[in-house]
Amino acid sequence: MATQDRKNVEGRTTEEEYDDVPESPEPAPEAGARTETEGTDDLLDEIDGVLEQNAEEFVRGFVQKGGQ
């Protein structure tokens, strides 16, 4: 079963594969703003690929019963 435990970690390994957007050490204000925008575009592209299909149906289907 140790193999299966290791499988659980695979998700985390995947997580580490995404590199942060490198930022120049002391960016000029404009360059910094551009890096920020590019970083955001890149982030949204990634999240587009992660979001569940058919948002409306998925959100509608998430129904919970009473809790504390």
Partner: peptide, 24 residues
């Protein structure tokens, strides 16, 4: 609404908190 929900998904590959954390 989906982003709100998926922020809290505990799976590192699907949870949006986890995606943000992976980017530092």
């Amino acid at each position: 609404g989906l982003i709100d929900l998926q922020y809290a998904d505990v799976r590192p590959e699907k949870g949006l908190y986890h995606r943000l954390a992976a980017r530092g």
